[in-house]
Design a protein around this nucleic acid. Structure first.
Length: 138
DNA sequence: CTTCTAACA
DNA sequence: TGTTAGTA
């Protein structure tokens, strides 16, 4: 099949499909007219590629274990273990960074809310002196 | 009409 | 990634 059909079946864009090839994730043959010709197996291949991309893996990482994953269908491919662990470690770092950012923003919000209480009667009618509470020293 | 490559909003 | 130009 040609790239258009593969795109409509898998939902991947033409751009992405060509990009996958550039990243050596797929290797379609070329027809005489220069068109990419994909085997029907490319459908599953593209689906698994998109799956791993959705998990946040780079095309380079996917290229590393894609063959192993494709061949060991319904089984576990050991090649993915180290990559998974690396990814989890990266996620931990990102979570820590995001937590820091969140804490900083929460602190700022608290500060702004406190300041709002102090400035509360800026455009509020001032209470008359008699009813006021300011001990004018008498 | 479909695809190709390359480059840019 | 999307999109688009100019072809084949």
């Amino acid at each position: 099949m040609r790239i258009g059909e593969l795109a409509s079946i898998t939902g991947a864009s033409l751009r992405s499909l060509r990009y996958y090839e550039q990243q050596k994730l797929i290797s379609p043959v070329r027809s005489d007219n220069g068109y990419r010709e994909y085997s029907p197996f490319a459908v599953e291949q593209v689906e698994t590629i998109r799956f791993y991309i959705s998990l946040g893996f780079t095309t380079e990482q996917i290229a590393g274990f894609l063959h192993c994953v494709m061949q060991n269908k319904e089984a576990f491919c050991r090649d993915v273990l180290p990559v998974y662990e690396t990814k989890i470690a990266e996620l931990d770092q990102q979570i820590q960074l995001l937590s820091r950012i969140k804490s900083n923003l929460e602190e700022r919000v608290r500060a702004m809310l406190d300041e709002r209480e102090q400035d509360a009667d800026y455009d509020v009618i001032q209470p008359p002196p008699e009813a006021g509470r300011a001990p004018s020293g008498g």
